[in-house]
């Protein structure tokens, strides 16, 4: 076979990195939505991704719904799980401190993972790629059509969220909760409902990430934890609470992994991402887009 040129190799690393990074970015955005409203880190975020993938497999492969129906059905179902998480695990806690709420999300994560194991077993599941599996060759690099879907959904998510937070009254209300929950409730915003909405939104975005990545990587019950860790890293790198930061952070971590694996050593690719993360935090503790003044007034 023909030898692949270095330029093509680099392009390949970039494309792969951006694709994997898009998934991390979507997880990171999910972290941020909940963090902004509640100041807690939702450790069940990875489980939303896993549920998105597995429920999509159920609707699309087992039930046989067409893609166009299975996709919204999955997102709605996972969104409901997110809302249930808020109603059953977060809201009932008396005198909530940030720490107890975080612990509640860890418990929920274990519970969801266990339930998924009971329902689907331990085997990985496959989902047909949305537009076939015939790869496209571009300047010597090979692109799976599914890559476009993953990156495309990240773009759609980003645009939709910015419209939501900047142009709609609910979105603005959520932003208000993020700035100051007490003040927001004084002007008549129902903070509890905003929290519920934040869980619903981030579960929905997690589901989208899971649905789009499953045709590439398969999905099984315990995949969520690793994605949550990577997504959390992305959120921290970009600055916790910042949406552009989350997206940039995800893409950076994905690319570093890919270039690190390709150019230096694949065994240490996770370490490269963490090293960059630590270096950034060393020089700018609030992350790339984070604001140190804002992070001072946050409880966590």
């Amino acid at each position: 076979m023909e030898k692949i040129t270095l330029a093509s190799q680099l392009l390949q690393y970039l494309i792969t990195g951006l694709t994997v990074g898009s998934v991390y970015a979507m997880v990171a955005v999910g972290f941020n939505i909940i963090y902004n409203v509640t100041e807690i880190i939702n450790f069940a975020q990875g489980e939303f991704v896993m549920l998105g993938g597995l429920i999509m497999v159920f609707f699309h492969v087992a039930v046989g719904l067409p893609l166009i129906l299975a996709f919204p059905a999955t997102v709605i179902l996972v969104t409901l799980v997110g809302m249930l998480l808020d109603r059953l695990a977060i809201r009932p806690i008396r005198r909530p401190s940030v720490l107890t709420l975080i612990i509640a999300t860890i418990a929920a994560s274990i519970l969801i993972k266990g339930a998924a194991m009971f329902i689907w077993g331990k085997d990985p599941y496959d989902l047909p790629a949305f537009s076939g599996r015939n790869p496209i060759t571009f300047l010597g690099a090979v692109i799976q059509p599914q890559y476009f879907w993953v990156i495309g959904f990240l773009v759609i998510t980003a645009i939709a969220l910015s419209i939501f937070f900047d142009r709609t009254i609910i979105g603005k209300a959520m932003s208000a909760c993020a700035d100051n929950a007490d003040a927001a409730s004084l002007v008549g915003i129902n903070v509890k409902q905003m929290i519920l909405l934040s869980f619903a939104l981030s579960a929905g975005i997690g589901a989208v990430a899971g649905i789009t990545v499953t045709p590439i990587s398969l999905m099984e019950y315990d995949r969520g934890v690793m994605l949550a860790i990577k997504g959390f890293g992305a959120a921290i790198l970009g600055g916790l609470g910042s949406f552009p930061g989350a997206i940039l952070g995800g893409l950076i971590i994905g690319s570093i992994e890919s270039f690190g694996a390709g150019l230096i050593s694949s065994g240490y690719k996770d370490a490269f991402a963490l090293l960059v993360l630590m270096a950034v935090l060393f020089f700018k503790p609030s992350g790339i887009f984070g604001d140190i003044e804002i992070s001072k007034i946050k409880r966590f």
């Binding site: 692949i4 270095l6 694709t19 694996a261």
Partner: peptide, 22 residues
């Protein structure tokens, strides 16, 4: 001699490197 993690989503980078070594 390439490696990947047990929960990795994509091994394209490792395989691309291998491809370069023919």
């Amino acid at each position: 001699d390439e490696k990947y993690g047990p929960k990795d989503t994509d091994m394209t980078a490792q395989l691309t490197k291998i491809k370069g070594k023919t």
